[in-house]
Design a protein around this nucleic acid. Structure first.
Lengths: 228, 228, 228, 228
DNA sequence: AATGAATGAGAATTCATTCAT
DNA sequence: GATGAATGAATTCTCATTCAT
C-alpha cells in the first residue's frame, strides 16, 4: 500500500489577505482553528457546529476565522483532507515490515481500525462528507483505495491473492467492510456503563479477518493459469 | 432472510388532533406528504430540504404538515422506516425460490442493488440518517442484518457456508460492501454524457460476487469438525 | 402634464409564499412595513437603516419582513416607486384648472416644491436611489420628465413657450433646478433655532420663477415662424 | 468667477504620528492613497468600497492607511475637497479670456461639463457626499456657487445679465441644471454598444445654452430701473 | 514609517414551528 | 381537517479599526 504523491497537498498554505507564505503566528492560528474544528465537528456534526463554536473553542476572535478559511464548508474540507493524510499514514505505518503482501493487507486494516478506534467521532466526520462535500469524500476514498489496489495487484503477482479477483472492486469492497464494521462495533458499541470501546473487539477483528482471508486467498489448484 | 415481526410498525397511524384512527382523507394526505418528503429529501438532502418545499410538492398547506408529523425529523424517520421495508421487500422478493442458500445470498444482494440502482438518491437518504437520526439508521441496518444472519446460519447448518465464519460480523461486512460498492459504482458512476447507470455494471457485480463466494464458500475438508 | 399609464404599477400585490392576491391582513402588514421603511430610510438613510429597525418601527416580527419583500433593496425600490406616484399626484393636482400652459408649469412646480417641503427627508430618499438602485431613479425621473415634456410641447404649439427650446433638455434642466433649489432652500435651510422651513421661502420661489419665465417665454418677434 | 480664498485648504498636511510636516516619502504615500481612493470610490461607490481595496490599489499596507487618514469617511471628504478644487480649476481655466460676462458663463459651464464628461464616475462620488458627509457637499456646492454669484453680479452691473434675477437663487438653479443634465446625458447615455459618450452631445449643450441665454439675457427695455 | 493579524459589532437572511381563522 | 401569516432564534459573513511588531 503506497501513498500517492501528495505533492500539491503539502504546498505551503497561503494567506488569503496578503500574497502568500503565512507567517509563523498565522500558521499557529490556522492550526488552532483546524483543531477546534475537528473537535466541534466531531462532537456536534457539521450542521450543529457553527463558526462561533469553532472560534470560541479555538480561543480566537470570530472574524479571524475568515482570515484562514473561506467558509464553514471550507474548513470542513480542509479537515477531511487532513484526516485523510493521517489515516493513510496510520495505515502505512502499520504495514511497515510485513512479511508477505497478505500480511501487509492485514496490517493495513489493523492500522485503519486503530485509527478509527482512536478517533471514532472523527471517522464520523469523514462519512458526513458525503452530504457536505461529496467531491472531498470521493477524493478521500479514492486515495485510500489506490493504495489498496496497488497492494492487491502486487500480491496477485506473487500468488498471494486470488488472481481472479478484480483489484478495484475488491478494494472498494474491503473499504466498505471496514467502514461498516467500524461503525457497528466501534461507534455504536457501548459496554454496560455506556463507555465506548477503545479498540475493536478481538473476536470481531478475527472474524473479519477470517472473512477477508477466505475472500482473498488463492483457491486451491484451479487458478494460476486459469485467468489471464 | 426472514423479516422480523414488524408488528408495531404496521399499527394504524393515528391522528394527532382528534383521538385516533385517521380518516380516509387523512390517510391520503399523509401518504402525499410522505411521498413529497421522499422526493425532496432525495433531491436536496435533509438540511437543504424544508417543510415548505415538502408541502408545496405535496400540494398541501404548510400548517397541515404538523397535523401528520411532529417535526421535520419525524417525517424523515418515518421515511427511512418506510424505505427499510421496501428494501427488505425487494431483497426477499429476489430470494424467493433460490435453489441453495448461497444462491439465495446472491439473489438477495442482487435485490439490494436493484433497489439502490432504482433509487440511488433514496439510498443516500438512508445513509444520511446517520447524522439526522442515528437510532433510526441503527434500526434500519439491524433489521437488514438480522435477515442476513439468519440466512447465513441456516446455510452454515447445511454446509453451504464456511462454518468458521461469524454470522453477525459477516452480515455487517457484507452490508458494508454492498453500501460502498453501491455508492462507488451506482451513485458516483456517470457515463460520458454524465448520465448515471440504470443498474450495477455486470462486471462489477460479478467481481463482487466472486469475492463473496470466495469468502463464504466452505474451505475444503479442514472445517466441519474444526469450529464450534 | 399627463401621467403615463401606470397600469402595471397598480396591479394587485401578490404574496411571495402562496399563489397570489394577498389577504386583507397581509395587505395591512405590507403597508405598515412600507410606512415604517419610509420613516427609517428618511431618518437614517439607506445604509444606516436596517431591516430590524424597520420591523421594529412597524411593530412586526423580523421574519415577517421577508414575507413581503425580498430584501432591503427591494423595499427601498418599492418605496421610491410609491413616492414617485405621490409626487406626480401632488404635481398634477396642483396643475388642475391652470389658465395657461405657462400657468400650469408654474403650478406644477409649486406642487413639486410643496411635496418636497412637506417631506424633505423623503426627497432625500429619492436622491439616494442614485446609489442604491440607479434604474429605479431613472424610472422616477423619466416619469416626471415625460409629464413635463408633454406640457412644454403643448405650450410651444400655442406659442406660450419659446419654440426654439428643446422640450426634453428643458424638462431635465427644470427638474435639476427644482432639485437643487429644494435641497438648498428646503433641506439645508434652518432658522435661528435650527428649525427647517415648512415651505419654500416666497422670495426664493419668486426668484426661481422669474428665471423660469425668462427661460421659457417666447422671445419677442424673432421666433414663431423661425423654428420648425 | 473667482475662487474664494482656499487658505486653510492649502495648509501643509501634517503627520498624525509625529509632530508635523510630513516627509517627502509620506507626502507620496498620501497622494497614492488619495488616488487609489479616487478610483475605488468612483468604481464602486462609498459603501462598496473598503479600506483594503484602497490600500491594495495603492500598493500599500492596510495599517498604513490610518497614518494618513482618520477614517474611511475622512479620505472620502479629502477626496471631495480635492475634486472641488479641480472642478473649479477646470471652470476658471475655461473662462479665461472670455469676451463678455455672458460669454464667460458659457465657458464656465463648458468647463464644468468638460470635467464631468471626463470623470463621470468621479462626479457621482461628489453627489454621493450628500449621504456620506453632507457638510462636505455643502462646502463643495457653496464654493462653486460663490464663484457663479460673483460672476452674475458683475454681469448684472454691466447690463449683460437681467438685473431682476437673484444671483444666489440663479446660481443654484444653474448648478442644478448642470448636475441633472450631466447625469442624464453623460452618466446615463450609452450608444448602441453600451459605450458612454466622451463629451456632452453638442445638440444637448446648445439646447441647454439657449435655455440659459434666455434666462439670463436682459429683457428688452423694461428692466434696469424696474427691480430693486 | 509601515505592516497585517486580530477583532467583534452588526447586518441580512432562513426556516421550523405555532396558532388564530 | 386545512390553512398560511407571523415569529425570532440562530447563522454566516463583512469590514472599519486597533496595535504589537
Amino acid at each position: 500500500m503506497t501513498t500517492p504523491a501528495d505533492a500539491e497537498l503539502d504546498a505551503p498554505v497561503v494567506s488569503k489577505a496578503t500574497g502568500r507564505p503565512l507567517t509563523k503566528r498565522g500558521e499557529a492560528t490556522r492550526r488552532r482553528l483546524l483543531e477546534a474544528a475537528e473537535q466541534v465537528f466531531a462532537e456536534q456534526g457539521y450542521h450543529e457546529a457553527s463558526i462561533v463554536k469553532i472560534t470560541e473553542r479555538a480561543g480566537i476572535g470570530l472574524g479571524t476565522f475568515y482570515l484562514y478559511f473561506d467558509s464553514k464548508q471550507a474548513v470542513f474540507e480542509a479537515l477531511v483532507i487532513d484526516l485523510n493524510k493521517r489515516v493513510r499514514h496510520s495505515m502505512s505505518e502499520a504495514m511497515i515490515g510485513a512479511a508477505s503482501r497478505l500480511e501487509a493487507e492485514r496490517a493495513g486494516f489493523a492500522g485503519f481500525f486503530r485509527f478509527t478506534a482512536a478517533h471514532p467521532a472523527l471517522y464520523r466526520v469523514v462519512r458526513e462528507a458525503e452530504f457536505v462535500s461529496p467531491e472531498t469524500l470521493h477524493l478521500h476514498y479514492t486515495r485510500i483505495v489506490e493504495g489498496y489496489e496497488e497492494g492487491l495487484r502486487a500480491a496477485q503477482q506473487v500468488g498471494d491473492v486470488d488472481r481472479r479477483l478484480d483489484p478495484t472492486v475488491t478494494a472498494w469492497a474491503l473499504m466498505g467492510m471496514g467502514e461498516l464494521i467500524g461503525m457497528r462495533f466501534l461507534l455504536w458499541e457501548r459496554d454496560a456503563d455506556g463507555v465506548p470501546p477503545e479498540e475493536l473487539d478481538a473476536h470481531v477483528f478475527d472474524a473479519m479477518m477470517r472473512f477477508i482471508d477466505n475472500a482473498l486467498a488463492p483457491r486451491g489448484g484451479m487458478e494460476g493459469p486459469t485467468d489471464a
